[in-house]
Simulated assay, not measured.
Amino acid sequence: MATREIQHITDAEWEIMRIVWTQGETTSKEVQQLLNQKTEWKTTTVKTLLARLVEKKLLSTEKLGNKFIYRSLIEEKSGIQLETDELLGKICAKEVGAVLKTIIDESVLSVEDIEQLEKALQKKKKNAVDVILCNCTPKDYSYKQAN
């Protein structure tokens, strides 16, 4: 499934998806047990969220005996790309660098992560522009003061 075809994943659904991605396949009971460590969601809430994810075609479900097995239909990387696109779509283009710096400052990174970031920045620097233009309003937008 292409990233653009993926429907928005809510924060609650994201919690479920993280478990499914980590487990590979899971049941609602396993999801509930893992979520109990950080949430107080009821079983019905977990089952509702799983059903929504199946409806959005983000999870598949298969009945096995008296339980349902859930598997992801998208790769974690695609989900992360969706979230990244949504975040970058919400902020001014001029602020992207500052946001990335904040993410780096606030994140625990391995030496390998830092080396990959350095390589990516060096590659990006070859085609960097001098000035980033604001993308917050349409180019033909003009402020008209009320008389």
Rank of each mutant, 00 (worst) to 15 (best):
Q7D: 02
E86W: 13
K29L: 13
L88P: 02
D85P: 01
E112F: 09
K101F: 05
T26L: 05
T43K: 04
R4A: 12
E30C: 08
E76S: 13
V31W: 01
G65Q: 07
R18I: 06
T61V: 07
V99I: 13
K63I: 10
E118M: 11
T26S: 06
R18C: 09
L50R: 07
V129L: 03
A2M: 14
E76H: 09
V99C: 13
F68A: 06
S28Y: 03
Y141V: 00
V46Y: 00
E106G: 09
L100T: 11
A120F: 11
A120N: 05
T102G: 14
Q81R: 15
E25C: 03
E95I: 15
T102V: 14
E55Q: 07
T44M: 08
A98I: 04
T137V: 02
M17D: 00
L87F: 14
L73P: 00
I16G: 02
I9Q: 04
I74P: 00
K144P: 00
L49D: 00
K125V: 14
M1R: 06
K124N: 10
G79Y: 01
N135S: 03
G79N: 01
L87V: 15
E30W: 04
N127V: 08
E40G: 10
S72T: 04
E62C: 09
L34T: 06
G79H: 03
A2L: 15
A2H: 12
N127G: 07
T102Y: 09
I132L: 07
Q116G: 10
E95K: 15
Q23H: 07
E62S: 09
E83L: 14
G89S: 15
Q81L: 12
V108G: 09
A12C: 11
I69F: 05
C92A: 15
W41V: 11
K126C: 08
E25W: 02
P138K: 02
L82M: 12
I69W: 02
L87K: 14
E55A: 07
D11Q: 08
